[in-house]
Write a protein that binds this DNA or RNA. Structure first.
Lengths: 133, 133, 133, 133
DNA sequence: GTGGTCTAGACCACT
DNA sequence: GTGGTCTAGACCACG
């Protein structure tokens, strides 16, 4: 049973919130390859959102290669071998890193703090991954 | 003279990019209370963007209390640094760091690559700041 | 002015028909990098289909890297540098090639005919590409 | 003994894959008029798919006049080859070829690669056919 | 039961 | 004006 929380006033699109939380569960090992996700109808009822919003979240995740939907069967986590080129991957990560760094700088946070936080987040993913197996 | 760079392909709204970079200059000390900002007409011409986009950026900044427009005189900085508490700062950074880490995990990028990219981006900001002063 | 024809009884999803025809126009050089596509509202009215169906076609094309949509400006053809790995590309093409070959075999079409048809289609794309430049 | 292979990841509906491969065997002469097909129960067990999926494949084939089910006796082939005219055949193949070429263009794959892949797939079908006889 | 597509219509964000 | 998101509800395809 997946615990996803939606904040309709956050300004972040609802389908994005769904995607992000599923990705986080995957990174932290609570969801792994082969696991079945809640059905579109079920999740939409649980979250009190429109089914098509869930459809959008799921199909974006499918585009990203994170999940796979099978007609009449359901939606499943894939063992994603990335189909992105190295340069595309680097570029995407660099954009996120820059966002973090600029925000930190703007707030006056020292580089050490940024590195510490990133390390901690990396560890959390690693640790949970080990637990899951 | 303010060096603002707009990337129309970044996915971030243009008015947001303008705001962020002005806030960034305020945080890094290049702009401080009392300094005058370029006029709407001037900035829109320099950046080749729509004047109404600059209007939106300025009015959001004014709403946030960061700048003040004085009729017929121009737009001026009213405060020079962020007022966030330490814990709020940490929380905001952690959100961005988590996004980066989760995305990296998704793409199968190793932790080393993430750390390397963050370090590189941190260095780059430092360099720019030194040049600016 | 783009001439797109929709056959609602073909069994092929409408958004797919839109995508395929735009891709074909790109391949044949009638649309090239930088060109603006009809707006969502305009195209939906022209084709007498729902705007969200056009949205779906456009956003799938954007995922494929073929087009780019800019908030408040419109939708434009990109100069797509592929972000797919070589193996993913080969795999996708092989699937289509297999479909063609199996269908041909099923119909009793000789290999020569298949090769001839593929060459002709390749030529058509090539020729029009040269004309466009 | 029919060798049918199902790929649940191909995106093609399972019942379609079953139909296509039976038609393929008919075209290649491995199945001819009067031959008996495996029972629904047997085939569904062999392929590890749902019996209703086999029912759907068989009934579509029956509807198309390719097979005939005789109550209590089994399912039999009624015709052994495609009845398409040359021009219809050419048209169908051209549609598939165009799809392949357009997609290749989209991904920036050179014409040579397309030709190479088609040749390889043609060869592979030939080999299978020879082995079957 | 499952997911896939489409419609009609609304509101928001951006330029 | 542009695209982006969301809702409500329908029908079809698949297993």
């Amino acid at each position: 049973m997946l615990h996803i929380q939606i904040d309709p006033h956050s300004g972040i699109p609802v389908y994005r919130q769904v995607m992000d939380q599923i990705k986080y569960y995957m990174a932290s090992g609570l969801l792994s390859a082969g696991d079945q996700l809640p059905s579109i109808r079920e999740l939409s009822k649980t979250l009190s959102i429109n089914p098509t919003t869930v459809v959008k979240a799921y199909s974006e995740l499918e585009h990203a290669g994170a999940i796979e939907s099978r007609q009449g069967k359901g939606v499943f986590i894939t063992q994603s071998k990335s189909t992105l080129t190295n340069s595309a991957r680097e570029k995407a990560l660099r954009r996120l890193a820059r966002q973090l760094v600029v925000e930190a700088n703007q707030m006056g946070a020292p580089p050490d703090q940024v590195m510490r936080i990133v390390e901690e987040e990396l560890d959390q993913v690693q640790i949970k991954e080990r637990q899951g197996r």
